[in-house]
């Protein structure tokens, strides 16, 4: 049983089990869930859709994982998605013949710059001014929607520039292109945080900021850049969202994404109390969230009502992470140690 123990002790184990259970449920109860089709050299099917539709949340979860690891939170990511989508849409312009107003790469770069600035704003409020992360990012959560609406003149901008559709709708090697963006970002982040001491620094700031400072880590700088990176991730996510629907809706783009992304991170094993973080776990978490969403939709439940289920899942997962709850739960079964 030693291998079993070492397996269950791996953080990635439980999220994978949860994903597996959800998939198994779908195998039995959702018809055609695992059917793949090849049309025009592209893979189609529910599972591919989950990967494709989950991409924006996965992108958000990358940045948010690091933020949560520092014992922070960023609830403004959904609004940054809307801002990023708004900026890129306004710069490409709604020309019916698909002629972009500005070259597409420039428009994308501009949107990313704006998103990074949003992240810097959050980072400044949290790290320099010392505001509580919730309040600091709440400002941008609400004001950001206003900014997105003002950017798009409170209208939905439709895009017709074909090349831009690649990000959210395109395919590469038969797989959705957005998956490669996610993979690239995750790989880059994993290398930067795990091949250098950066990841360790982030974790130590999350576990004990004072102790981290005494060991010589510039906690304030670190936190500032983590929020900036989170803004960048939200910007990329905004580009993908905008490209998927080829429109920017300041009012509805990215609404509730912060919830999904936080849920993904927490499901992936990163604790809301900061400290150790698991990027790959967060990706599995995002897939769980997306599979859950797809499953709920498959049962004909309107998207608006799906929020209820997600909210309940957040409460349950929070409970599972609570020490008090665990000891209470264990007390019922008379066990002394828990491997989760």
């Amino acid at each position: 049983m030693a291998w079993w123990k070492s397996l269950t002790r791996k953080k990635i184990f439980w999220p994978l089990i949860a994903l597996g259970v959800l998939m198994l449920f779908n195998l039995f109860f959702t018809p055609n869930f695992f059917r793949f089709e090849i049309k025009e050299g592209h893979l189609y099917g529910n599972v591919i859709d989950i990967l494709k539709n989950g991409a924006p949340i996965m992108l958000l979860a990358v940045g948010l994982t690091l933020v949560i690891a520092t014992k922070g939170i960023d609830i403004s990511v959904g609004s940054i998605v809307a801002i990023s989508a708004g900026v890129v849409a306004m710069l490409i312009g709604g020309d019916l013949h698909g002629v972009p107003k500005y070259p597409i790469p420039y428009a994308m770069a501009a949107a990313l710059v704006v998103s990074v600035m949003c992240g810097m704003w959050n980072g400044m409020l949290v790290a320099r001014i010392g505001m509580q992360p919730v309040i600091a990012t709440l400002i941008l959560l609400v004001a950001g929607r206003g900014i997105a609406m003002v950017t798009t003149n409170a209208m939905i901008v439709w895009l017709y520039a074909k090349p831009f559709a690649l990000l959210g709708q395109g395919y590469l090697l038969g797989l959705p292109f957005s998956i490669f963006i996610v993979a690239g970002l995750v790989l880059m982040t994993v290398i930067i945080t795990r091949r250098t001491a950066l990841g360790l620094f982030i974790e130590s700031v999350g576990i004990n900021p004072t102790a981290a400072r005494f060991t010589g880590i510039n906690a304030k700088n670190l936190i500032f850049w983590v929020y900036t990176f989170c803004g960048f991730c939200a910007g990329v996510s905004g580009l993908v969202v905008c490209s998927t629907v080829m429109s920017a809706d300041g009012n509805n783009a990215g609404v509730g994404y912060e919830m999904d992304a936080i849920l993904a991170v927490v499901l992936g094993g990163t604790s809301m109390n900061g400290g150790k973080f698991y990027l790959v776990g967060s990706m599995v978490g995002a897939l769980i969230v997306q599979t859950l969403t797809t499953t709920i939709y498959a049962f004909g439940v309107p998207p608006e009502i799906a929020q209820v289920v997600k909210a309940l899942v957040v409460w349950i997962v929070s409970l599972l992470q609570s020490k008090t709850f665990r000891s209470m739960f264990l007390g019922m079964f008379g066990k002394k140690e828990l491997s989760v």
Binding site: M259, I262, I305, V308, K310, V314, W315
Partner: peptide, 30 residues
Amino acid sequence: FLIQKFDLPPFIITLAGLYLARGLCYVISL
């Protein structure tokens, strides 16, 4: 109760509450 009894951060619990209540609105009527 969740916040006090299980020592959970208020914002995450009430953020979930935000989505729960909003979702329940749609359960009543779209």
